[in-house]
Design a protein around this nucleic acid. Structure first.
Length: 419
DNA sequence: CCTCCACCGGAACTTACGGAGT
DNA sequence: ACTCCGTAAGTTCCGGTGGAGG
């Protein structure tokens, strides 16, 4: 049906042309709309978070550091293991992939028998799948389940020895792997090198505390070299955005002042460049949808609340039943103007529990649930003392209660509590 | 200055559950 | 089918505390 209409659309246009004698009342609207539909985003892929840019402003020092350590591969010598750390969105992954890309083309030109592998441990999920990635890179095809980890590792090593292959393996978000499965795999990898076939590791982590979970032997071997990635400042983020916008967006579609606004909003968080680029992309999409010529401040503001809403929704939807009940208790107390202290909230929470026929948790447990909600940023707590009347936490909602109720209302068991 | 409220938050323990190994 | 193990959620117990009111 749709197909038919599309196929004949221009004929229909001709028909109207005749019928209205060039005076089609929709013509100018359609035309104006299609004129305005000049896209703002010319190259979507450049604004995606997994894109590796050709230039990385304000990361030359880190690039030189990493490349300096890895450069020995060009002489077939095993580089030291490197550990990269810094908060999210500070360019660790981008720098690493950038250097790896560059070196791997050099290596191919020089005929050195080294391969570069990049694995994101969080996306891979298990030790088995990380090993499977390595096997794949060594040209060994392995079933995606069924073998033991030891067998996988043996096959990988056999392939390396047979082909005289060496590897530079980048384990991104390696902290996740260690948290979930321990450091056994890292230990195996760090000690499996010999004269001709070696494995160099690049560990990337945004959790600094992670180092404490490592076996001292693994730690000392993994962090032979360390490169720190400090958060970007607002002006640095602005540079990055300017650079990216120039390539991805139609020229003239965004002004410097708007870019600086995006940068300032993103930098006020943690200097996270990924967030900044997300914000830019969403703002551009908003502007496009509204048929605007340029991205203006209002589009950025809208984009920000859009992103924030998405985040809140995701968080609330992932909450288990009792956390939701606690959250609901907090927001309904706040709406009724009751004192939002732990005691009152716990009582309201108990009422909610009994009205949906669920056993309430203890006050101690609820106390940690409140702390967790605080950590997630959907409420804010403050320790206060009322002297003789004790000490408690004052709990404040941080997002409009309408948003919370809107999300909770979709839940059948909880919607009855909204009143 | 001392008391004592109403809760905070650490620690140890229990329970439930989903794999892994056999 | 069975045990074993690790983990997450939750409970019990309890020591700790800032400051209004005595």
């Amino acid at each position: 049906m749709v197909q038919t209409i599309n196929n004949r659309s221009h004929h229909v246009g001709d028909l109207y042309e005749k019928q209205w004698g060039g005076d089609d009342p929709l013509a100018d609207i359609i035309q104006r709309y299609s004129q305005q539909r000049q896209p703002i985003i010319l190259r979507h892929e450049l604004l995606r978070s997994d894109y590796v840019p050709h230039s990385l402003p304000h990361r030359t020092a880190q690039i030189r550091n990493v490349a300096g350590v890895l450069a020995t591969v060009l002489r077939s010598v095993k580089p030291s293991n490197i550990f990269l750390y810094g908060k999210t969105g500070t360019g660790k992954t981008a720098v690493c992939r950038y250097v790896l890309n560059r070196l791997s083309s050099e290596v191919v030109d020089r005929g050195v028998n080294v391969r570069f592998v990049y694995v994101n441990c969080r996306l891979a999920g298990t030790e088995y799948r990380v090993l499977a990635e390595l096997c794949l890179a060594a040209g060994v095809s392995v079933p995606f389940t069924g073998l033991s980890k030891g067998e996988l590792f043996r096959r990988f090593q056999n392939a390396c020895w047979r082909l005289g292959l060496s590897f530079v393996v980048c384990l991104d978000e390696v902290d996740v792997l260690v948290r979930d499965f321990g450091d056994d795999l890292l230990y195996e990898l760090t000690r499996s090198s010999n004269e001709h076939c070696w494995i160099s590791l690049i560990g990337i982590s945004n959790d600094l505390m992670f180092k404490e979970q490592l076996d001292p032997r693994v730690l000392s071997s993994l962090s032979e070299e360390e490169v720190v990635f400090p958060p970007y400042t607002a002006t640095e983020i602005a540079d990055i955005l300017l650079d990216r916008a120039a390539q991805a967006l139609r020229p003239e579609s965004i002004g410097d002042d708007v870019i600086r606004l995006v940068a300032a909003l993103a930098a006020s968080e943690h200097g996270d460049a990924r967030r900044a680029i997300d914000l830019l992309r969403v703002a551009a999409e908003v502007a496009e949808r509204e048929g605007a010529e340029r991205i203006e401040e209002q589009h950025v503001r809208k984009a920000q609340s859009l992103i924030e809403r998405g985040r809140v929704k995701e968080v609330v939807l992932s909450l288990p039943l009792h956390s939701r009940l606690v959250l609901l208790a907090i927001y309904s107390c706040a709406r009724k103007g009751l004192e939002t202290t732990s005691g009152t909230i716990y009582n309201v929470y108990r009422e909610f529990c009994s009205s949906i026929g669920s056993e309430p948790l203890t006050d101690r447990r609820v106390s940690t649930l409140v702390s967790e909600l605080d950590m997630l940023g959907i409420i804010a707590t403050e320790l206060v003392s009322y002297g003789r009347h004790g000490r408690t936490r004052k709990i404040k909602p941080t997002i409009p209660s309408s948003e919370i109720t809107e999300i909770i209302a979709k839940d059948d068991t909880l919607s009855t509590l909204l009143s």
